[in-house]
Design a protein around this nucleic acid. Sequence first.
DNA 1: GCTTGACCTGGAGTGCGCTCCAGGTTGGAG
DNA 2: CTCCAACCTGGAGCGCACTCCAGGTCAAGC
Lengths: 120, 120
Amino acid sequence: MYAPSEAARRSGFSLDTLRYYEKIGLLSGVGRTSGGRRVFTDDDLGWLVLFRCLRDTGMPIAQMCRYAALAREGEHTAGERKALLEEHATRVEEQMRLLQHQYDHLREKIRYYEDVTGAG
Amino acid sequence: MYAPSEAARRSGFSLDTLRYYEKIGLLSGVGRTSGGRRVFTDDDLGWLVLFRCLRDTGMPIAQMCRYAALAREGEHTAGERKALLEEHATRVEEQMRLLQHQYDHLREKIRYYEDVTGAG
DNA sequence: GCTTGACCTGGAGTGCGCTCCAGGTTGGAG
DNA sequence: CTCCAACCTGGAGCGCACTCCAGGTCAAGC
């Protein structure tokens, strides 16, 4: 059981983002105290960690919503969810290749400056 | 000497983006035909390739403008430009580490589905 | 000389993912 | 009991990087 600020700290999302994720239905079923304040469970935190992973790897929010909706539908969507993640993983691999490629370019450019400015 | 469409094709930017980059002063001194149409030189293309590299690695446009402005100021800004690229390269390295880390998470998650759905 | 498609300009609009705000409530510390 | 920081809601606003549009121009091919 975590207070909103604690959930934010642990997930790396801002409070506003947590509220936003709930508002758009990405995160659902977040509990409330009698006073109306959010209570995050370990399960919620698990979701947030996954969302962190997917966002950091560039998945659009709409796709995360799709994934979350499938998960809510039950066990029989496991195959579809897996396929979704695999497609994403493939895109991430491409992204990593491109990033590496352009990083090499960048390093080359810097090496050029090293020659021009007389090392340094 | 390249027509706008050819420059777009070679750089991977859209025509609108090329015009936009000129409008905000990122790309400057692009020539014109007597009829007012853009003519891109190999030098312009060189800049576009660099911009492609910097964008693909996540550099904000404002920073690319700064770099381009320094380059326009002359040779004496070479050190500053190099520093700018090096700082960026460091950020890219962090980005690559994070991406790799989250990719590993993603693969783990997929492996979990493999166990659950009975391989496949 | 007419058509057609690539191109021009200035400016408005879009999509994404938050982020901020106003105005009000809650709940633990002193 | 009072204070104050953390929290609530609904909704507006923002920053970025384009992207699209209207209305017009240019030039190669028939």
